[in-house]
């Protein structure tokens, strides 16, 4: 019985959202507000229940002194963040600057990790993957063409963003090649985006005609 009610509610919500295709209307607005409210409440409860509370509980009750101290530091930092709340502008407006400490800490750690992982895990392997032998003993013509496209594509696209020198004469052709490569990339990305959106539509329509209307064999 609960499943049936769930399917009917989901079908109503789906149709209400799709009704926006025929223009803004009160039913759409109603469902949109339900979505925003439910998502926010769900997010807060999940965060408290799954992340914040287990972390505090475990950190405080542990026998590991190092973990205990770092947990207290993290809780302290978390409390400092609360000084950024709008209400603090009325309670203690001169103390809102305190919230900058945890933000600075998170930014610093995030940047440190980001730089290292970005260089080690992204830039280096990508550069290495571009150092391709155009032709080897057993390389097929398709592979040779593919390697050439890759090398020419990378170099010309990089050169497209090189603005320190006027791009004239033969260099303009490199820029044009880079531009064509970038346009093809955008086109393929856009094609994939369409495929993604159509897939979502298929998912919803499949739900309507299968779970709700039972039209699918």
């Amino acid at each position: 019985m609960m499943d049936l009610i769930g399917v009917w509610v989901a079908a109503f919500l789906t149709l209400a959202i799709l009704s926006f295709l025929f223009g803004d209307n009160p039913v759409y607005k109603f469902v949109e507000h339900i979505f925003v409210g439910a998502s926010a409440a769900f997010g807060i409860i999940v965060m408290l229940n799954q992340a914040v509370w287990p972390f505090i509980q475990e950190g405080i009750t542990t026998q590991d002194m190092f973990l205990k101290i770092t947990t207290y530091i993290a809780i302290f930092m978390g409390i400092l963040t609360l000084f950024r709340l709008e209400i603090m502008n009325y309670i203690a407006p001169t103390l809102t600057w305190i919230s900058r400490f945890p933000i600075a800490f998170v930014t610093g750690v995030g940047t440190g990790i980001g730089i290292v992982t970005g260089i080690h895990g992204y830039i280096f392997p990508q550069v290495v993957a571009t150092f391709l032998p155009i032709m080897e003993n057993n390389t097929s013509i398709i592979e040779i063409a593919s390697n050439l496209v890759l090398i020419v594509g990378v170099l010309s696209s990089l050169y497209y963003f090189y603005f320190s020198m006027e791009q004239r004469g033969a260099l303009r052709w490199i820029v044009k090649t880079g531009m064509i490569i970038i346009m093809i990339t955008f086109g393929s990305a856009f094609g994939y985006t369409i495929m993604a959106r159509v897939s979502l539509l298929i998912g919803r329509i499949y739900f309507l005609i299968s779970d709700w209307l039972h039209l699918v064999r």
Binding site: V198, L201, I202, I205, Y206, I209, S210, L215, V216, R217
Partner: peptide
């Protein structure tokens, strides 16, 4: 979208 799904 719907016709290919219904007709399988």
């Amino acid at each position: 979208t719907a016709i290919p799904l219904i007709m399988n």
